[in-house]
Design a protein around this nucleic acid. Structure first.
Lengths: 334, 334
DNA sequence: CTGAAAGCGCTTACAG
DNA sequence: CTGAAAGCGCTTACAG
C-alpha cells in the first residue's frame, strides 16, 4: 500500500505537493500536477482515510440507527437506505449503521458514536410522535437531521425533512372525486399518531372543500395490518354507509380494504376506489394494483444530506416535500 | 473533548498507562487502574477511534452494499441488517453502507473502500447465481464472507454462510404430508436460479421418499410476483391435477397461490395446504397466516461476523444453517 | 508495574 | 508555485 511519502519520492516533490494535488490541484503548476498524478496512478495510491480524518477531525460518516420493529413492517426501508447512501456518496460520505435502544435509553449510544468520532452526525428516521431523541441531540449539540416530524406542540428541535401527508390525503380525495366517487371514507390509525392525524386532517379538509360528507366516514384501526384494514372496511360496508371511495393511511391497510371488498364481491376500482400510502413494493404486486403515494426518496435523501453537511446557516432547515400520486387499478372506475 | 494526554495529566500517570487501562487493564496495579478510571470518568473521556485505527490500521468497520432492486423486493432486509449490526457491535465493530454497480462493474468501489481503509472487509449478500464478486475479492485478497452460495460448478471462492433450502423444501413436503396432503405441487422460479433449483430438489427428493407423485406438479413462474404465483396456481388447478398442497419458493409466490385459491372458493389450509419461504412480514399479516420458513437471522449474522473477524484459520469456513418452519393457518387442515 | 519516545499517514499554516 | 515542520490522538515495542 503506497503512502503519500512514497508518491512524493516517486514524483520528486514534497508530500505537501502531493497532498495539494489531491485536495487543491489548482495550486500546482500544470506540469507538476501531471507528474504527480502519473505517480499516483503508477503506484495505485489511495489516501488513507483514517489519517485524513485524524488531521481534519471529520470522519465523513453519518450515523443511522437501524430500526428493530418486530411488529411494524418498514416496507420501503431498502429504498430509503439506498437513496440515503447514494446521496451521502455524492458528497464523499458514507452511512454507518448502528443499533440502539428505543427512545431516550438509546441516546448514550448516539453520544458515544459521536464522541469517539465514529460519525460526524446522525440522520434520524422512524420518527415517533413526541420523539425524545431530537431534543436530546440538540441539547448535546450533536449534529443531526430528522426524516419526519415529532408532532409536538412546541417547535421541533433541529432541522427536518418530511413528506406532506395532509396534502397527500387531499390529493387522494380529489383523485377519487375526479373518478366519480362521492362518499369517500378514511381508514386510519389511533389518535396518538401525529402522522395519522395529519393525513386525516387532509382528508377532512378536502372532503369539506368539495362538499362531500365526512360524518361516520373516518374509522380507526388498532394496528397497521391487513387484518385490521379488512375489519374496519367490513364495518364501513356493514353500516350501509354507501362508501364508494377509501383513502387508507398505509398500503397495508389498503390491502386489507382490497381483500374485504373482493371477499364481498365488490370490485376495487370499478365499485370502490381505494388508495394507499408509501407506494411500497406490495402496491405494485397485488392485483388490481394499488393506487398509492410515492415518497420522493431521492429528493428526501438529498435534502437530509444537504442539511446535515451544509453547516448551520441561521434558522434550522425545514423542508416539506410533496408526495406523488401513483395511479393503479384500485382507483380506476373503468 | 478530552484526550489521552489530558487524562494522563489528570491522573498523574503517563499516556501509556491510560492506554493500558483501556486496552490491557490487567497490566496496571489495582489502585492505579482505579485512579485512571476515575479521571476517565471525570473528564468524560472517549478514545478517538480515528487515532486508534491509524495506529493499528484496523478500522473495525465492515462494508455492506445496499441493494437496489427496483423489481425485486427484499422483504426481510431490515431484519438482516439489524441482526448484522447487532452481531458486529458485539465485537465492537460497525457496518458501513455503500452503493455499487451490480456485478463486476461495482468491484472498483469495493477495492477503493478497502484501499482507503474505510472498511476492513465485506459482507456480501443478495448473492446471485454465478456471482462474480467472490472470485474478484478473493483475487485481490480483500477479506469478505458471503451470505448465500453462488451455485457455480466449481468450488465457491471464499467463506460463506447459507440456509439449507433443500432441507426447507423437504420439511415443507413432510409437514404437508403429515397434515394429510398427497398431491403436493412446487411453485418455483426459472431454471437459471441456483437457489430455486436447490429448493426444487428438496421438494422432489422428499416427495419420492414418501412415495408421492411429482410428475407435472412442479411449475415455474417468470418472476417473483403475486401475479405470477396466482397464474401458475391457476394452471395447476385448471389442469385437474388435484393438488392439495403447494410448496411455494417464496412468500410472494405463496401469496399469489392463496389469492388464486380464495378466488376459486378453495380454502387455504383446509382444502389446500400452502407454504412459503423466508417468513417475511407479509406471512404474518395475511389471513389465513402463511406457513413459512424463518431464516435464523441472528445466527446467520453471528456466523458471518465470526468468520469475517476470526482470522483465516485454514480452510474457508462454510456453514449451512437450517431454516425453521413457522406454522400458520395456510397449512392447517382443521 | 510504569514511562519516554517513535510513529501510524495525513493536512495545514507558514516561510521562501 | 513549492517545501520543511509541526501535529492530529492514539498504540506499541522497549527500557527501567
Amino acid at each position: 500500500m503506497a503512502t503519500l511519502k512514497q508518491v512524493a519520492a516517486h514524483a520528486e516533490v514534497s508530500v505537501q505537493t502531493v497532498s495539494n494535488a489531491l485536495n487543491a490541484p489548482h495550486r500546482l503548476r500544470a506540469d507538476t500536477l501531471a507528474r504527480v498524478n502519473r505517480s499516483i496512478e503508477l503506484l495505485n495510491y489511495r489516501p488513507n482515510r483514517n489519517a485524513r480524518s485524524l488531521r481534519t477531525s471529520a470522519v465523513e460518516l453519518i450515523g443511522y440507527c437501524v430500526p428493530n420493529w418486530p411488529n411494524r413492517t418498514h416496507l420501503v426501508m431498502d429504498q430509503f437506505l439506498h437513496a440515503l447512501c447514494a446521496a451521502a456518496e455524492r458528497t464523499a460520505r458514507h452511512i454507518l449503521l448502528f443499533t440502539a435502544e428505543p427512545g431516550v435509553d438509546g441516546m448514550p449510544t448516539y453520544d458515544d458514536l459521536h464522541a469517539r468520532r465514529l460519525v460526524d452526525g446522525f440522520v434520524l428516521s422512524q420518527t415517533e410522535t413526541r420523539d425524545p431523541r431530537h431534543g436530546w441531540l440538540k441539547n448535546q449539540e450533536i449534529p443531526f437531521v430528522s426524516f419526519g416530524r415529532v408532532w409536538k406542540e412546541t417547535t421541533q428541535p433541529g432541522p427536518w425533512v418530511d413528506v406532506d401527508g395532509a396534502a397527500g390525503s387531499a390529493l387522494a380525495v380529489r383523485h377519487l372525486y375526479d373518478t366519480g366517487r362521492r362518499r369517500i371514507a378514511f381508514v386510519g390509525w389511533p389518535k396518538s399518531s401525529g402522522l395519522g392525524e395529519d393525513r386525516l386532517g387532509g382528508w377532512r379538509t378536502e372532503c369539506k372543500r368539495l362538499g362531500l360528507p365526512t360524518t361516520s366516514l373516518a374509522v380507526r384501526c388498532r394496528e397497521d395490518s391487513i387484518e385490521e384494514g379488512a375489519r374496519v372496511t367490513g364495518e364501513l360496508l356493514d353500516a350501509g354507509r354507501e362508501v364508494d371511495g377509501i383513502v387508507a393511511l398505509s398500503d397495508i391497510l389498503a390491502l386489507g380494504a382490497l381483500r374485504e371488498l373482493t371477499r364481498r364481491g365488490l370490485r376495487p376500482g370499478p365499485d370502490v376506489g381505494v388508495t394507499g400510502f408509501d407506494d411500497s413494493p406490495l402496491a405494485e404486486v397485488v392485483s388490481p394494483g394499488l393506487t398509492s403515494f410515492r415518497q420522493p426518496m431521492d429528493l428526501i435523501a438529498e435534502e437530509l444530506i444537504a442539511i446535515l453537511t451544509g453547516g448551520s446557516g441561521g434558522a434550522p432547515a425545514e423542508r416539506l416535500l410533496q408526495p406523488e400520486l401513483v395511479i393503479r387499478g384500485s382507483s380506476v372506475p373503468g
